[in-house]
Design a protein around this nucleic acid. Structure first.
Length: 474
RNA sequence: UCCUCGAUAGCUCAACGGUAGAGCAUCCGGCUGUUAACCGGAGGGUUGCUGGUUCGAAUCCAGCUCGGGGAGCCA
């Protein structure tokens, strides 16, 4: 990649550290200028070393400076976190830990760093770093996490765009409060002191901003289906909000979700899409962030690379809910919760299936209708629905999807059975009246994908500023 | 929301009923190739908050707040 800053041959070249590592031949022996932040300084009486990072590359550039420097005393006093611009010659390094280093001829101090800077050059706990979420992207782990996150987002867009999917922006504010996917955050401009009431005492939402009750979306799926039945293949990728009081390493109140929806497609097509997408993203990240992935493998999860590479080579497992119940019943494992057909699978059951029995990602399909949402397509047995969950080792449920019920009479019956108001779904039901066809889709929790890709074990450490119960700092 | 464990210097931890310590970080000094550099010195604390027991509480008890792990809900 040619830097937009790169100058002509023989002149001083300003470039980013990534380029020195990717094309060191081009720069070795030449004069360069580089901007960055000090990660650590090691100084002696007449010379010193600076580890410089400019955010473009995982590794640091070692800068060597000597007494001849005009501002040697000031440079020698630099502390971790300072911003500097260095000019000098890029030379081969005699040290064992880096191939080359920058022999400084001039160091300009662009921004000093106060001595109470909380980041040290030793290891911090993730719990502490969460309290300084504005500074943590400067650490190795978070630099790696958020570069992988960026690459994974790009890979997802690329995967769908290459396959002619249309990216749909579904609304963040929704008027539908009956999507059944959990507690919602209310959106209102009504005052708290004198909330308008109707005669019976309930809040009068006709006087609210939208003239009706509105909430933050818990899923873009129903809206995505409308565009699916126009474009054939669509996907959403945006923020999602759940007001559940969930206190776990896998839940956040604000998270990002990817929801593809495909027309003229059944559950099998849906699972094939999900598997292809997962493999595409894994492959893309392994190829484009090798330094970051090596770091995770070394310091975060020692079996990460082996596991991801194995996933690329193997086919995902497939098992029906009914078969899964049999596997669990016949397993030697002692479960805390009893296994019975009709009960939802507990976390311990899901973990056993993904981590012990299959030891790779596995689709569980055809769940009892009682434990799944109204829009999932009824199977011929009238007892199970065409649903699928993808379980992955270490994270658990990462995808939930289904073939949608396209038969109007079946769908109306399901709404009635669940006590849902038919009028609230008038436009959703219209899709079944006007050219309805079989279609399917799924929801992928983006943060859970990042956890799976990096080996990070807490969702709060894979999203820039996590929102969880009792925490919305920053 | 439930169960469980925890909160001591900026950070990571020790002290477990009797004067609150160490390593790292910071500041000062030393050191001619360092790699979480090294060596010497200094400053730094209402022991999460409120109350209780005790001659005496970081330590024991109660409540609260916040955090970790597990569970539920789910992505």
């Amino acid at each position: 990649m040619q830097s937009k800053h790169a100058g002509g041959v023989g002149k001083m070249q300003t470039a980013v550290i990534k380029e020195f590592f990717k094309q060191s031949d081009k720069y070795l022996g030449g004069k360069i200028r580089v901007d960055g932040w000090v990660r650590t300084v090691r100084v002696s009486k007449t010379f010193g070393f600076i580890e410089l990072n400019d955010g473009t590359f995982f590794a640091n550039l070692q800068v060597v400076f000597e007494e001849s420097l005009g501002n040697f005393t000031e440079v020698a006093k630099l502390v971790t976190g300072s911003a500097i611009t260095v000019e000098g010659e890029l030379v081969e390094s005699p040290g064992a830990k880096q191939p080359f280093e920058l022999k400084a001829e001039n160091i300009e101090i662009m921004g000093t760093c106060a001595p109470d800077y909380p980041l040290q050059k030793k290891r911090h706990t993730f719990e502490f770093l969460r309290t300084i979420a504005h500074l943590r992207p400067r650490t190795n782990t978070f630099a790696a996490v958020f570069r992988v996150r960026s690459l994974a987002a790009y890979a997802i867009h690329q995967f769908f765009q290459e396959r002619d999917f249309v990216y749909v922006h579904t609304p963040v504010i929704t008027g539908s409060d009956a999507e059944g996917a959990g507690e919602m955050f209310r959106v209102t401009t009504l005052g708290f002191d004198k909330t308008p009431r109707k005669e019976a005492g309930q809040v009068d939402f006709t006087r609210d901003f939208f003239g009706r009750e509105t909430n933050l979306t818990v899923s873009g799926q129903l809206e995505a289906e409308t565009y699916c039945l126009a474009f054939g293949r669509v996907y959403t990728f945006g923020p999602t909000f759940r007001a559940e009081n969930s206190n776990t390493p896998r839940h956040a109140a604000e998270f990002w979700m990817i929801e593809p929806e495909i027309a003229f497609a059944d559950l099998k097509d849906d699972m094939n899409l999900a598997e292809a997408m997962m493999k595409y993203v894994i492959g893309y990240v392994l190829e484009n962030a090798p330094e970051e992935m090596d770091f995770f493998d070394k310091f975060i999860d020692k079996s990460l690379l082996a596991r991801l590479e194995n996933v690329l080579k193997s086919h995902f497992g497939h098992v029906t809910y009914t078969e899964a119940i049999d596997i669990l019943k016949n397993s030697p494992e002692k479960f805390e919760y009893p296994v019975e057909w009709g009960c939802d699978l507990q976390t311990e059951h899901e973990r056993y299936l993904a981590e012990k029995h299959f030891q790779k990602p596995v689709f569980v399909t055809d769940y009892p209708k009682q434990i799944k949402a109204f829009y999932m397509r009824m199977n011929d047995d009238q007892n199970t629905v065409a649903a699928m969950d993808l379980l992955v080792p270490g994270v658990g449920e990462i995808i939930g999807g289904s073939q949608r019920e396209e038969r109007l009479d079946y769908l109306e019956q399901r709404l009635a059975d669940l006590g849902l108001n038919r009028e609230d779904y008038w436009w959703y039901l219209d899709l079944r009246k006007y050219g309805g066809t079989k279609h399917a889709g799924f929801g992928l929790g983006f943060e859970r994908l990042i956890m799976y890709l990096t080996g990070m074990s807490n969702i709060r450490d894979v999203i820039s500023f996590p929102r969880t119960p009792k925490n919305a700092e920053f």
